[in-house]
Computed example of a mutant assay.
Amino acid sequence: MVLWFIWKARNGTIFRAKPPDPNTIVDLAQANLQNFRRWHNTNEAKNPTDLYLPRRWRPPDRGTLKLNVDGSWVPGEPVGSVAGILRNHAGQVVDGFISDTRASSAMQIETLAILKGLEFMHLRKLSHMEGAGTELVEAEKVLCESDCLTAVQSLMGWAKHPWNVQTILSQCNKILAQSSVMQVVYCPREANSAANWIAKGNRTKALPQNWMSNPPPILSEILCSEFYLSSSCTS
């Protein structure tokens, strides 16, 4: 499974000029293997060496920002919500966004969340260029994480996708082609709890306007828990 995704990443580098990310390759391979076992009901013996690594939010490297994005949509409703939360290597919240958007499927809302995240970071970079040097802003790397495996694979050209997300994917690739520091990667759902809660809170109108400067108790608990776990993991 891992070799398959290494081969796919190699093709992406050769034919689409997309540099491979080792963590993404491993995460995608593990997620696909987990899905395969779930749907094929394989009864392989469970042992300590077969267990997956803890699925938790991981802080980015110093000099890199991590934007977790997610979407919330209920079948039958024409409008959903997308959200993103930007954190630095110390787990501190740097910025974020929420937006209501029309959607007709879960895949579409998840893909829109990635697009809104890339647009958000692109506009943020442009606005920061006015107060800082272009080289400083351009050097700041950004990882945009989504827990929708199919959306990330489709963006990389590794999976088929519904017709109603083709335009969204094209817009995403256009933004990525204009930047050498932004990258979209997959993360497990357990590592995307904050963005998930924010998107749902915005959709249900339960999210206060000052959610970044004064996080609600539940969001604050999620952020503190993720910071504690990531600190324990990397210490």
Rank of each mutant, 00 (worst) to 15 (best):
116 K>T: 04
66 K>D: 06
193 S>W: 02
221 E>R: 03
23 N>G: 05
50 D>H: 12
160 K>V: 06
75 P>G: 08
118 L>I: 08
87 R>N: 07
194 A>N: 03
101 T>G: 02
156 M>W: 15
162 P>G: 05
138 E>F: 00
234 T>S: 15
93 V>D: 05
142 V>F: 05
179 S>W: 07
226 E>I: 03
64 T>I: 05
12 G>R: 09
92 Q>K: 12
113 A>W: 01
51 L>N: 10
158 W>K: 06
17 A>Q: 15
212 M>Q: 14
225 S>G: 09
120 F>L: 10
89 H>T: 09
136 L>C: 00
192 N>R: 03
34 Q>I: 02
148 C>M: 07
50 D>E: 15
60 P>L: 03
88 N>Y: 06
161 H>T: 02
55 R>L: 11
194 A>T: 03
9 A>D: 11
224 C>N: 14
222 I>C: 01
34 Q>M: 04
39 W>L: 15
36 F>E: 13
209 Q>C: 14
128 H>D: 10
164 N>W: 01
118 L>E: 06
33 L>F: 10
220 S>T: 00
164 N>S: 08
74 V>C: 08
99 S>L: 11
51 L>V: 14
85 I>M: 08
196 N>C: 08
71 G>F: 05
107 M>F: 01
203 R>V: 08
161 H>F: 11
73 W>V: 05
190 E>A: 11
110 E>P: 00
98 I>Y: 03
209 Q>H: 14
115 L>N: 05
28 L>K: 09
15 F>S: 09
211 W>H: 07
201 G>W: 01
140 E>Y: 01
161 H>I: 00
130 E>I: 04
143 L>H: 08
154 S>A: 15
225 S>M: 11
124 R>Y: 13
80 G>K: 03
173 N>T: 02
148 C>Y: 04
200 K>R: 14
210 N>K: 13
144 C>A: 10
223 L>D: 01
225 S>H: 13
141 K>T: 12
15 F>C: 10
130 E>P: 00
64 T>M: 03
11 N>D: 14
173 N>C: 06
8 K>G: 00
95 D>Y: 11
177 A>H: 14
102 R>N: 10
162 P>S: 07
87 R>T: 11
53 L>H: 08
156 M>G: 13
161 H>E: 09
116 K>V: 02
91 G>Y: 05
53 L>K: 12
16 R>I: 06
77 E>N: 12
18 K>M: 15
1 M>K: 00
170 S>G: 06
33 L>P: 00
73 W>E: 04
36 F>N: 10
220 S>C: 04
172 C>L: 03
195 A>Q: 05
36 F>L: 11
76 G>R: 07
150 T>W: 07
200 K>Q: 09
140 E>F: 01
56 R>N: 05
152 V>A: 09
208 P>H: 12
232 S>L: 15
227 F>Y: 10
84 G>I: 04
133 G>R: 02
193 S>L: 10
129 M>R: 12
130 E>M: 06
40 H>M: 13
95 D>K: 14
54 P>A: 07
53 L>Q: 13
140 E>P: 00
79 V>N: 01
136 L>E: 05
72 S>C: 06
55 R>N: 07
132 A>I: 00
225 S>P: 01
10 R>D: 10
221 E>I: 00
17 A>K: 15
131 G>D: 10
13 T>C: 13
